[in-house]
């Protein structure tokens, strides 16, 4: 490939990475500020998705093919995290309600 094309690829990838990193910081702000629990779970899910795109761009930038495996693993783990978190918080809410009724 001609060096002009290589340079162009490099610029596009690095620009996309910087843009996504800025988006990530905004998601953090929402995770810290959000008044309810569901806000925070949504923000963590978004952070996971943005990180997935970052990992894929990196795997093309460094020309290593196996980093795409990490992407799939990250998707599975973040999905599982949302399921378990919602289950736990619903259970906590119902337990508090039951204790409140018993009293």
């Amino acid at each position: 490939m001609s060096p002009v094309l290589e340079n162009a690829y490099h610029v596009v990838f690095v620009g996309a990475l910087i843009f996504l990193a800025v988006m990530l910081i905004f998601c953090f702000i929402r995770a810290v500020r959000g008044p309810r629990v569901a806000d925070r779970i949504v923000a963590v899910n978004m952070i996971g998705t943005i990180v997935m795109v970052i990992i894929t761009i990196l795997s093309l930038l460094l020309k290593e093919g196996y980093l795409a495996d990490i992407c799939i693993i990250y998707a599975m783990i973040s999905f599982l995290a949302v399921i378990v978190l919602t289950k736990v918080y619903m259970g906590v809410y119902f337990e508090k309600k039951q204790k409140g009724e018993k009293k």
């Binding site: 783990i77 599982l80 399921i83 289950k87």
Partner: peptide
């Protein structure tokens, strides 16, 4: 770890 995560998903569902 991945297979364990699959089992946990099955248990939750």
């Amino acid at each position: 770890a991945i297979i364990g995560a699959g089992l946990i998903l099955y248990l939750n569902a």
